[in-house]
Design a protein around this nucleic acid. Structure first.
Length: 580
RNA sequence: GGUUCCGUAGCUCAGCUGGAUAGAGCACCAGAUUUCUAAUCUGGCGGUCCCAGGUUCGAAUCCUGGCGGAAUCACCA
């Protein structure tokens, strides 16, 4: 719609003032509520070229548009703002068009590999991972819907000193405990030993910089692991498998999937090789203790270690390997890393080092840097027990959804299984929306009480609006009322026009969300649309409307609304319940 | 200390590449259900957009400098 308006305004500017190719500079916005009109054109940017008073120019342009016919049938000018009223037939056309379109955008011929989740296998997933997973999942969906070829990958950090800590602690104090005999999820069990290591280690430390025997043992274990020591590797494999099983459950409940899973244990060697090659070529440098470094001072950064003196790899080394492998596997034109902004530095360095090593495609790497999750009481610290566990959190939001629903006794006619299903959708809908609605780049405050809210600006509010729309359509079917696929004429009132306008915005919102990579845009749009529908629903009879023309218009609006809101929610990974 | 990001209502957040009188939700107060789902709707209360300069027809938005907060500057990942 806005495109069409820009088109005719460009024509007006050209005919009236001989201003050519002005299209990109034309500013169109929605007319504010307090004025008559649908869209508003701002003449100020063109005033110098027009060389008339704003009101006069506005009037001339408005006059031109009305006389031209077609889109605009009336206008008013306030200061430099020309408020345009769109002819009613146009709204009907637009509604029909949306009713017939699917919502996926045309192919862009762009291949994107997106990495997210990237867990460590030494402890269970927590709230921070949830934000990461939800962002990665939603982004993937948005990128796909906006016409991109998307490959979702996970990179499991299954090696390193932290894993060895859990292993060592289990060996020393585990007494053969397993997930089965302890009745504990594998990731939780391994996490417990990570904590145990820390506790025991603390007992041995008098001042913080001291390297304890225990820590030395862990380092020794890492060295053995990198050399392929049989016993260490077997233990490593056993414990990691416990963890994977646990993660799988968590992912499944969250609704997260991957096309491919990389394991750092399988990629770090490639990184090591490439680093050593870089050293041979003189791109990297070696210090007296044999450690290998990249000199980044020409980029106004420090030096960065890539291999320790004992030859073992660090995080950067394995990430170099993973990136190279990933590029070989898919040759994408974009590699997105969904990783918290605490690692901004890591990714600037990664890109530079790859470039130094001769990989021009390092420019394709895009760090999707999202903000931290904060809690009302401060940070999450595992040592202080303030970590919000992912499984616990999901359990809690679902329980809350159940509690609320049972109070209102709405779903009593459903079977227990059906009910459980609905509570699951709603609980997770609440959690996902709560996290995705905020701008991903900003730090966010996670208030546990607010996150399970079902009223106001929440996921369930939006889900409810959908359930209502479906309820109307179901009743229509029961009464043998046909839901029109299109309508020929009608006179939408103000509220109806309002919804149609919003529905018409959906594709451009999706386009924008894909461009700037922000699920929050979709979330905010969905909320606005749902609110609009609830208002419409409140004071418009739909099925009970006797005038058939009006009823059909409203039915079509209801049906189209349902489709759009369902699609939008699906991009957030939220399921729309048929009833709730 | 250097670098980066952030600062909008009591709280949590919107505010697109500068545009009209800065918007939502929560909380608080007052209302709405003989009507398709009240997990809803309507109204009220609530702001020196951190501060000070600058750019211009016009600044929450752009620039500079302060103040406040966060992250990072690891042979942890």
């Amino acid at each position: 719609m806005e495109k069409e308006i820009k088109q005719v305004i460009a024509e007006a500017l050209s005919v009236l003032y001989e201003i050519k190719s002005s299209k990109d500079r034309i500013q169109i916005q929605k007319t504010r509520k307090e004025f008559a009109g649908d869209y508003t054109f701002n003449v100020f940017p063109f005033l110098k070229e027009i060389r008339k008073a704003p009101e006069q120019a506005g009037n001339e342009i408005g006059q031109f548009l009305v006389e031209k016919g077609g889109l605009v049938h009336a206008f008013n000018v306030i200061k430099g703002f020309v408020n345009l009223e769109i002819k009613q037939d146009n709204w009907i056309d637009i509604l029909n068009t949306i009713a017939q379109s699917d919502f996926n955008l045309p192919e862009k011929n762009e291949k994107v590999v997106i990495e997210y989740s990237s867990p460590n296998t030494n402890k269970p997933l927590h709230l921070g991972h949830i934000r990461n997973n939800l962002l990665g999942d939603s982004l993937s969906r948005i990128l796909k819907a906006s016409g991109r070829d998307v490959i979702q990958v996970n990179l499991v950090n299954d090696r390193g000193i932290h894993i060895c800590k859990s292993m060592l602690a289990w060996e020393k104090w585990g007494n053969g405990e397993t997930p089965e005999n302890a009745g504990l999820k594998g990731d939780k069990l391994v996490g417990n030993y990570y904590v145990k290591f820390d506790q025991e280690n603390k007992k041995l430390v008098s001042d913080n910089n001291e390297e304890t025997e225990l820590l030395k043992e862990a380092r020794e274990m890492l060295r053995k692991w990198e050399k392929g020591d049989e016993k260490v590797c077997a233990l490593w494999e056993k414990m990691n498998n416990w963890v994977y099983k646990g993660f799988e459950e968590t992912y499944k409940r969250l609704g997260i999937t991957f096309d491919k899973i990389y394991y750092e244990s399988e990629t770090y060697k490639l990184g090591k090789d490439k680093v050593l090659k870089g050293l041979e070529k003189g791109i990297l440098l070696q210090k007296d203790d044999q450690s290998v470094w990249a000199d980044l001072t020409d980029h106004k950064l420090d030096e960065k270690i890539l291999l320790r003196a004992d030859g073992t790899s660090v995080y950067m080394t394995q990430d170099i390997g993973t990136a190279i492998l990933r590029h070989q596997d898919f040759s994408p034109n974009k590699m997105i890393y969904v990783v918290g902004n605490e690692q901004d530095y890591h990714f600037t360095v990664l890109k530079i080092v790859l470039k130094k090593l001769g990989y021009e495609w390092s420019e394709f790497i895009e760090h999707f840097s999202y903000g931290m999750v904060e809690l009302p009481h401060g940070k999450m610290k595992s040592r202080e027990g303030t970590v919000v566990d992912a499984d616990d959190l999901m359990e809690e939001v679902v329980a809350q959804a159940r509690k609320m629903a049972e109070e209102s006794d709405k779903l009593s006619y459903l079977s227990e299984e059906e009910k459980a299903n609905v509570f699951e959708l709603i609980g997770l809908g609440a959690l996902k929306y709560y996290i995705l609605k905020v701008d991903p780049r900003k730090n966010m405050m996670f208030n546990p009480e607010e996150s399970v809210q079902l009223q106001g600006n929440t996921g369930p509010f939006i889900q409810y609006s959908y359930a209502r729309s479906k309820s109307v359509l179901r009743k229509a079917a029961e009464q043998n009322i046909i839901i029109p696929e299109r309508i020929d004429e009608g006179n939408p009132d103000e509220k109806e026009v309002q919804i149609i306008k919003l529905l018409a915005d959906y594709k451009s919102v999706l386009e924008e969300a894909g461009k700037v990579m922000s699920p929050a845009l979709i979330a905010n749009y969905a909320f606005t649309l749902a609110k609009e529908f609830n208002q419409f629903y409140y004071d418009h009879a739909i099925l009970k409307e006797e005038n058939e023309q009006i009823r059909n218009l409203r039915l079509l609006i209801t049906a189209v609304f349902g489709e759009v809101i369902k699609h939008a929610l699906s991009l957030l990974g939220i399921t729309s319940p048929e009833r709730m």
